[in-house]
Amino acid sequence: MPSTRDEHATSDPQAFWSDFVLPRLVLTKGVSPRDKSGAVTVARQVLNDELSAMHLAMCSIRTRINSLCPISALPAELLVHILELYVSTKPAGSCVDSGGHLGWIEVTHVCRLWRDTALQSPGLWSNVCFKLGSQWTELMLARVKSVPISVHWDETEGTQESLDFISAHLRHTRELSLAGWPTILKPIIDTFPSPPATLEIMELGADATITVVEGSNFELPGSLSGHRLPSL
């Protein structure tokens, strides 16, 4: 005799899922909208929990469908290379005014494979964005792990919180570009590790709207000026 599993595999999908859900509906059997003891609220929560569970089941089916697409047969390293090319053409935060503010990060919402690939590739997150808010900045810095990062910060767009993020990750910063008041930039520069072996490019400048006043300049700290910097 065929097993229950075999019967499910050959049965009509609609009939299968209709039969499957009936025992779950029994959990709220007998509850009436006229009940005043809180049973209605509990029943609605139970049913919403069932919907959430079914949504996860549907996601699993969609994932399986996507796994049968030709692109899913690409080697992981090739998919990463494609994503790297997309990152370079559509950086995060580059299209804020047009509504596509996430830029390349939107690919992580396409399917589970692309999301998992992006999350397992720290290099994709190395160009840290400050335009999307501190939550996204912190998330990108967490996903990049210890991979060398590129930081481009402008006083007109950044916040004090973003400066704190920069200071905390100077040790693995490869490219640093800062624009703002010297009094704002100096505390960051002073926190550079000694010597900053990862740093390859550094640009310090003032915004076009800033008027430099006497006494606002500062000297580079010893961690930058007092050591040999082979990468810079």
Rank of each mutant, 00 (worst) to 15 (best):
V128I: 15
D35I: 08
S32M: 10
P196H: 02
Q14E: 15
L78E: 09
C95N: 11
L113F: 10
N66W: 03
S52D: 14
R174W: 06
E84N: 05
G226S: 05
L68V: 09
D190C: 04
V80Y: 02
V40K: 02
R228W: 11
L56F: 08
L85F: 06
D164A: 14
P187F: 05
W114I: 08
V31W: 01
D19G: 11
Q45E: 09
L170D: 01
V46F: 05
M202K: 07
E7D: 13
G158Q: 02
M58E: 12
C95K: 12
L79Y: 01
M58D: 10
W181Y: 14
V212A: 10
A142W: 09
R34G: 09
R174Q: 11
W104H: 01
N66Q: 06
S126H: 03
P23T: 06
T191S: 10
H81M: 09
V40M: 06
F165W: 11
W153V: 05
V213W: 15
F192V: 06
D6Q: 12
M1L: 13
F16A: 11
F20W: 15
T63R: 06
L83A: 04
A9H: 05
A9F: 07
G222N: 10
A73K: 14
P13Q: 11
E214T: 11
C129E: 02
L51H: 08
